[in-house]
Design a protein around this nucleic acid. Sequence first.
DNA 1: GGCCGCCGTCCCACTCAGCGGTACGCATGG
DNA 2: CCATGCGTACCGCTGAGTGGGACGGCGGCC
Lengths: 259, 259
Amino acid sequence: MRTAEWDGGPSVLARAAAVLDAFGADTTELGISELARRTGLAKSTAHRLAGELVRIGWLEQAGTKVRLGMHLFELGQLVPRQRALREAALPFMEDLREATNSNVHLAVLEGIEVVYVEILRVRDSQPLPSRVGGRLPAHATGVGKAILAYSPPEVVKARIDAGLTRRTAYTVIMPGPLMRELATIREAGISYDRQESAMGVVCAAAPVFGADGRVLGGLSVTGRAERLDTERMAPAVRTAALTLSRQLGAPLRRASTRA
Amino acid sequence: MRTAEWDGGPSVLARAAAVLDAFGADTTELGISELARRTGLAKSTAHRLAGELVRIGWLEQAGTKVRLGMHLFELGQLVPRQRALREAALPFMEDLREATNSNVHLAVLEGIEVVYVEILRVRDSQPLPSRVGGRLPAHATGVGKAILAYSPPEVVKARIDAGLTRRTAYTVIMPGPLMRELATIREAGISYDRQESAMGVVCAAAPVFGADGRVLGGLSVTGRAERLDTERMAPAVRTAALTLSRQLGAPLRRASTRA
DNA sequence: GGCCGCCGTCCCACTCAGCGGTACGCATGG
DNA sequence: CCATGCGTACCGCTGAGTGGGACGGCGGCC
């Protein structure tokens, strides 16, 4: 029974990856049959794979169902791109939260999407579209645009070629305007999200650079449109991002830092 | 060439797990040959496995070397045991840090060791032996003993049978004293670490319970022996742990909560 | 009560994916 | 200039992995 719909190579590892990827933010537990259905694997294959994954600690048995295991969390915390950046950024993020009394985000670019590495929320925070370890399209977020603005052209092209999907009425979905906005961001060193990723949510973001002068990620201050004056937050975000970049050993040039 | 030294089943997944486990806190990048050496795999096998792991995003190419990939971080953040507990605990942990002006730890038990799920540090914090996603033997930490005290007997037995390894001159390494201390912890609802995991580091910890009444993890306040009065911190830690447990839906009985 | 559908589990013969010995080109450095 | 160690690539052999199928148990519906 060729279920087709397969993308990469049908190696054992690809199948195992499919099994783990079947889980999600709202899909914490799965039975064997459900797993087989979602991955397109034969039930007996899903059964055996799940068993092996439990053996090595990547899955945990929950009654007769199965869920992601602690070993994956441990491995995830060792990922260098995330670890080094988060560790260096945390103190500055806490300062930024205190100074602005708003939610603070730290994200990196992964392909054409941003992955949130750390989020510091304020007490009364309304729900946000972001989640630590969660993904959002780069062109529809403040941090994403800040990173894209300082990324090599082929990265921006990849994002555009993949389609500028609309998330709200304000999402930038045309290549021309996006390219123009990225140029503006480069001039100011600041990018804005004006309800482009989720209605009612705005943010001011700035890029973070590494020792080799390349963008490592983005830092942002996020809040509700009614309460947060993004332009007023811009200097604080930019300052925090610059200080962080300097501590990471970035070779910061004069005013507008061009990588 | 049977390199022996193999533990589980020699399945593809076990080999892939060995590859990923070859990385560590200080081992962020590895070459193919080094990888083959550490895993006991043939160089050509390590090469192919690494290639496949890169394809599915679990490893990233770094020049000719290889390191853990962002996809593992994303997966790790979805692990339910960690996610639910951390999310619920964060506000209380921040309060606890502010109230005690000390480092706050949240950990769960994984086998016979504790895994740190979240750590809130204070500004001037001296280096600690703990790391988010890191492991320490349960019997040698405050959170570990707090969890063990409310765990089923077979869990404690497993810890003892595995050997009560010494970490400092103060580590409890005899089964008898450990069992007695666990009983004391059950009476007081508080456990202490008096330089048992690392010299100069002390802590006060309390267990956190879930909706089914079982221990989910431990919460602690940690600092330098010269500066932190653990007994004075005990009520704050215990209160935070009880409040958190209650919010998690734990069926808390009278004074000493016995699961 | 009895049927039916879905579940997790187990078995087993076939086959091709994975394995590793081997070889090559290339830096490095003594 | 050779020795050493690296990453990469090829390729024939084989047993690990696959999936169709069967089985017993559990609930819900008729």
